[in-house]
Each structure stands twice: as structure tokens, then as C-alpha cells.
Computed example of a mutant assay.
Amino acid sequence: MDFLKEDERLDYLLAEDLRIIQSPSVFSFSLDAVLLARFVYVPIQKGNLIDLCSGNGVIPLFLSARTKGMITGVEIQERLFDMATRSIEYNHLQERLHMIHGDIKDMPKRLGYGKFDVVTCNPPYFPTPSSDEMNENEHLAIARHEILCTLEDAIQASSHLVKQGGKVAFVHRPGRLLDIVTLMRKYKLEPKKIQFVYPKQGKEANTLLIEATKDGNPDLKILPPLIVYNEGNEYTPEIKEILYGT
């Protein structure tokens, strides 16, 4: 297909009747993005949503199947921004979805404070390593490590962008839970629900989903655990429902 570049491919977005451009050398979405897009509250009929650290646009595309609202994605890497834009065009969603090529730290001043009903973010998970430990692939290094965006940057930007009473949802690693809660409260985001994701029964959680309300009252709910694989190394029924709708 002439709109694909270099080693790109066109993949199905599983349960949704959508396609997405991916590249093994640049970016391919993970289960984390799918889980965040299904976990977060969304207004069904209308509203303004924004996804920070969008990568190839996977979360805006997933969210488009859950809401009729307007969705903005923000991505700092030009190549990923380009992939996301072409995926949106391929799916004919330009009227409701659009991408911004830029730094999430600049978005409150650029887009306005308190303009969004929902903010989602799948940020880089890991502190910036020493140069000899860093992935040689610049695209993957920036996506995985806090090179251009720290956890505090992401939470601060989210707080500035969301309306009072609006929702902010992150996916991250359980080891950063206390950092996330501390920073959310610092920026007036009150955690309201948390869900831990486990690779298998009896294993430690390896993924954290958390949603907060801007200026909300303290009242945290811990949702039932989500287990990815059964003993036969197949997806559990809950994950199959999320991925395939069956």
C-alpha cells in the first residue's frame, strides 16, 4: 500500500473495526494502551478528550469506538505523529480525531487550561538510564524512558488541561504507585479508582491503571484484579473480551 513507509504494516485494532499503522523499528502498541483505553471513563455522546504521549495514535483510535466526542492526541516524535495522522485518515476519522506534533508540557498554554473532560496518558515508564544502557533506537528510547517527559511533567500537564471534576487516567508500573498518587495530589488530582493487572494468577502485578478526578473528594476504589493469561498461557476471558469483544 503506497501510504505505508519503510517497514510499516497495517494492523487491525482487534475488537474495533479499525486499522492502525505500526512499525517494529519505530513503535507498536502494547496491551497497556488497550487496557487504558477501556479502563478510563468517557462521555458517550459528546465531550473533549485528549491523549498525551500518543505514540502512533492507538489510544485515540480505541477511544473513538467508545465516544462520539472530539479526541486530540499529542506526540512529540515526528515519525510517530505522522503514523498516527495517517491512521486517522485511513479510518476516515478526521472530523473527530486530530493529532498535534508537540511537547505535552506546552499544551496547557497552547490549548487552554481546563478545556478537557478527559485526559489519558501512557507515559514513558522508566527513568533515563546512562548512555551505555540506553536503547540505541532513539524512537524506542524516548517512548520507554523519561528523556523528554518525566512522570511529573505528564501529571502536571494533565491537571492543567482537565476541567474541574474531569477525569485523568494513567497506565504505569505498580512500583511507581506512590509517586503517582503523591504527584496527582500535588496537582489537585484525587485518585478515585485503581486496578492492578497481573500476568498470571499468583504472580506479582506488572501494570497499574489509575483514574483521578480534578479537585475530587477522597474516596478510592480498588477494582478487582485483572489477570492476563491462564495456566495454559492463553488469554483469560476478561482479556479476550477487552481485546476481541468476545
Rank of each mutant, 00 (worst) to 15 (best):
G245C: 04
R176L: 04
M134F: 01
N135P: 15
C121D: 03
E231T: 11
L111W: 13
Q201Y: 12
Y41K: 00
L18S: 10
S30N: 07
Y244A: 10
I222T: 04
A169S: 15
I239L: 13
I222A: 03
V119G: 14
H98E: 00
R9K: 08
A33I: 07
E241K: 13
T85F: 02
L35T: 10
N137Y: 03
E241A: 08
P124N: 13
A157R: 09
Y41R: 02
P108F: 14
K186P: 14
P199G: 08
L13E: 03
C121R: 02
S23D: 12
H101Q: 12
Y244W: 11
G166C: 15
V168E: 15
A205M: 08
H101F: 12
V58Q: 06
G57T: 06
G102D: 01
S28M: 09
K192P: 05
K186W: 13
F196H: 05
E95R: 10
Y113R: 08
I155G: 06
L14H: 12
D153C: 03
G166E: 14
G165C: 04
L35P: 12
E133D: 14
L36Q: 14
F126I: 05
D103I: 03
L93D: 07
G114L: 00
K167R: 12
K105M: 09
Y113I: 05
C53D: 08
L111H: 07
S159N: 02
I180E: 01
S23H: 11
H172T: 05
E238P: 02
G202K: 12
S23A: 12
G47V: 10
I50E: 12
H101S: 13
K167S: 06
I227N: 03
R79D: 14
M83S: 11
N91P: 14
P60G: 12
T128D: 15
R144E: 05
I242L: 15
E238S: 15
S131I: 13
D179V: 01
L61E: 15
T207H: 04
K203D: 08
R66F: 07
T236G: 04
I210D: 12
L189H: 06
H172C: 00
S158W: 03
I71R: 02
P124R: 13
V34D: 13
L148P: 02
V58R: 04
R185V: 05
